[in-house]
Computed example of a mutant assay.
Amino acid sequence: MKIIQKLCLIVCTVILVNCTTAEIPLVDQNPVNRTVTYTQDIQPIILGNCLTCHSSVNPRNGLILETYEQVRNSSETGTLIPRINDAANPMPQSGLLTADRRALFDQWRAGGYIE
């Protein structure tokens, strides 16, 4: 009986140690070789993936992502980009965006949030 208890403890420890809330890096991702803009690149992703929960009609956690200013503010001073990259607590909650879409947000940030 003690062997089973020890084995269960070891298995649980291994599972807990391997759990992470770290961001998933964009490994083997081709860099975006052009200027990423809100209107061309980011807005379509927001419209297709975020407004179900983050529109002005009953916004989840009070976060509204309907305008450039709202998305930029949440990206610069909020948690939008970290949450988009967080495998343990992703936004959208249905799962991580594809790596190429997440790379667009990172490039948009690196380029200065161009509208």
Rank of each mutant, 00 (worst) to 15 (best):
L16S: 11
E115G: 02
D100C: 00
P44R: 13
I42N: 11
D100A: 10
N61R: 11
V27W: 01
C12R: 06
D28C: 01
V14D: 00
L80D: 06
N49M: 06
G62C: 12
I4V: 13
A87M: 07
L9S: 10
C19Q: 13
T67D: 11
I84N: 00
P59N: 06
E76Q: 15
Q29H: 04
T37E: 05
S56P: 00
P59G: 01
I81Q: 01
S56N: 14
Q43S: 14
V71N: 09
L51G: 07
C19G: 04
L96N: 03
I10Y: 02
N73W: 09
D28G: 02
L97V: 12
R60W: 15
C50F: 15
V32K: 07
P82G: 08
D106H: 05
T98C: 03
R101S: 12
I114A: 15
W108A: 06
T35F: 12
G78D: 01
N49E: 14
P44V: 09
Y68E: 09
N30D: 12
C8P: 01
L9G: 09
T67I: 10
M91V: 14
P82C: 05
T37D: 01
N33F: 00
T13F: 08
N89I: 14
H54L: 11
G112L: 07
V71P: 08
I42C: 11
G95A: 11
D106C: 04
P44T: 09
L9W: 06
G112D: 09
C12I: 08
D106N: 14
Y113F: 15
T77Q: 07
I24G: 02
S75W: 03
N61C: 02
V11Q: 05
C50S: 06
S74I: 05
Y113T: 00
S55D: 13
T39Q: 15
V27T: 14
I15K: 08
I84P: 04
T79L: 12
N85Y: 13
D100N: 13
L51D: 11
L9N: 02
Q43E: 15
L80T: 13
P82A: 11
C19V: 13
P90A: 04
C12N: 13
